[in-house]
């Protein structure tokens, strides 16, 4: 594992499983979402080409605000095995 990468848990909308991905500190949230989607969308979750993906912290009440799309992993202070919701949103 690269020194500047962090494993996160991905809770991808409509998916059956919680996934594990390494993200880089410099990745912004669009990049994080894209890394997750590459292994999920079109494989186990249907693609929604007209929508974009947003990322937020997983919380008990499912009401965390999404991270700004250009915010980096480093700026969001994501820690090892932190769980993120990745979900479809209107473009």
């Amino acid at each position: 594992m690269a020194v500047n990468s962090t494993p996160i848990l991905c809770r991808f909308q409509y998916d059956c499983h919680i996934r594990l991905f390494d993200v880089d500190q410099a990745d912004d949230m669009d990049a994080v979402a894209a890394k997750c989607a590459a292994h999920i969308v079109g494989r186990q979750v249907a693609s929604q080409p007209d929508k974009i993906l947003r990322v937020r912290r997983t919380t008990d009440d499912d009401n965390a605000p999404p991270f700004p799309r250009d915010m980096t992993v480093e700026a969001a202070e994501l820690t090892r095995f932190e769980q993120l919701d990745v979900y479809f949103d209107v473009a």
């Binding site: 848990l9 809770r11 998916d15 499983h17 996934r19 991905f21 292994h39 095995f81 769980q83």
Partner: peptide, 28 residues
């Protein structure tokens, strides 16, 4: 084919999963 790892439970050691689809129930 699955091409990446799933998270697994630190107790039962089984991939963490729940109903897929609109309910979106999977959660660690």
């Amino acid at each position: 084919w699955g091409d990446s790892m799933t998270a697994v439970c630190n107790m039962c050691q089984i991939p963490i999963s729940h109903r897929p689809g609109p309910e979106w129930r999977a959660r660690a």
